[in-house]
């Protein structure tokens, strides 16, 4: 619309694009034109498309985060309204002095790193096996992916039964092999690994699918060239194929890590409450307990911000990586 009409003659039908221009000779000041100049030629006209979602996301996501941050700076607890006149970092100091918070943060971090690494490794292994032109490939793929489609409420109950000390299938198997029974959920040194194992079982299929797509995108010539050069299968995967799966690894690990941060659903369903077994309390469960059981809104908000920063620490580098590669 802002294109000047100095193309060709003055006859009306030669003006193919609009007819009347808003700013014919640059005389006078138009705020719309100024905005367009600053942000690109269609800034104002296209705003009706991007502005509503922009405002909605801004309000409900970023607005809510900022509000949460503000609440975490108050001393707000129980009912009533927070007092915004007296803001300080008291809740953050309290969190650092609270050993339960530190334990939960450490557990969250261990879950995050351990779960993601093992799930990726397992998913990659499955993907390579499924990709080797085996029989029943589709069936196997479906079987591996199936746990992912189940609700956490269901899988947590499965695992609660399987981890049962007396009747759980895991203890039955290992005791029939001659090992002693293990108190999977009751021993605070073991329970985190038990939960991690259950989550890994559920998400390995997802990692497999992402890797499978990555493997399918690698041209057959690469395999053939490696073979012609005399590389063994292991060497071929290690030196030729896996390095090409960097993109799949990064996108799968971001999804897995973000999930690990909010494993709340699984833990909630495992015990039917906000308090997971001793040794596997994570920030998400602690946050909900502080908010809804103790009504310590400000403290819960501070925990939420800590959780948010951890998530940002994961997603931020990923976004930057994509940005530098021109994908954003």
């Amino acid at each position: 619309m802002t294109r000047n009409t100095d193309t060709g003659g003055d006859s009306g039908d030669a003006v193919a694009d609009g007819g009347v221009t808003e700013n014919p000779n640059g005389s006078g000041f138009s705020p719309i034109a100024a905005l367009n100049d600053r942000f690109g030629s269609d800034f104002v006209e296209s705003s009706q498309f991007w502005l509503p979602p922009f405002l909605l996301v801004g309000l409900f996501v970023y607005g809510a985060i900022i509000w949460n941050l503000l609440i975490s700076l108050t001393d707000f607890n129980s009912f009533g309204s927070p007092d915004y006149s007296d803001l300080d970092f008291e809740m953050y100091a309290r969190a650092l002095a609270d050993s339960a918070f530190v334990d939960a943060a450490v557990n969250t971090f261990v879950l995050l790193v351990g779960f993601t690494l093992v799930t990726l490794a397992l998913g990659l292994g499955l993907a390579i096996l499924v990709d080797r032109n085996i029989r029943f490939e589709n069936t196997l793929r479906t079987i591996y992916l199936l746990p992912m489609s189940l609700s956490f409420v269901v899988t947590a109950q499965f695992w609660a039964w399987m981890f049962n000390f007396n009747n759980g299938v895991i203890n039955i198997v290992i005791s029939s092999l001659g090992f002693g029974r293990v108190d999977w959920l009751g021993n605070p040194d073991i329970v985190l690994w038990a939960v991690m194992f259950a989550l890994m079982w559920q998400f390995a299929g997802y990692a497999m699918v992402v890797y499978l797509a990555g493997l399918r995108a690698i041209p057959n010539e690469h395999y053939e060239a490696a073979k012609v050069d005399g590389a063994s299968t292991i060497r071929m995967y290690w030196r030729v194929i896996i390095p090409q799966l960097k993109g799949s690894t990064i996108s799968a690990s971001v999804v897995l890590m973000v999930f690990a941060l909010k494993a709340f659903d699984f833990l909630y369903s495992l015990v039917g409450g906000y308090r997971p077994p001793n040794g596997v309390d994570i920030l998400a469960t602690k946050m909900v307990r502080e908010a809804y059981q103790a009504n310590e809104w400000a403290y819960a908000s501070a925990i939420a911000i800590a959780l948010f920063l951890m998530a940002l620490g994961i997603v931020g580098p990923y976004l930057y990586y994509q940005y530098t590669r021109g994908n954003l």
Binding site: N166, D183, L185, G186, G272
Partner: peptide, 9 residues
Amino acid sequence: INDDASSIG
């Protein structure tokens, strides 16, 4: 108490 106390309600 029962051995499976921690896994039952």
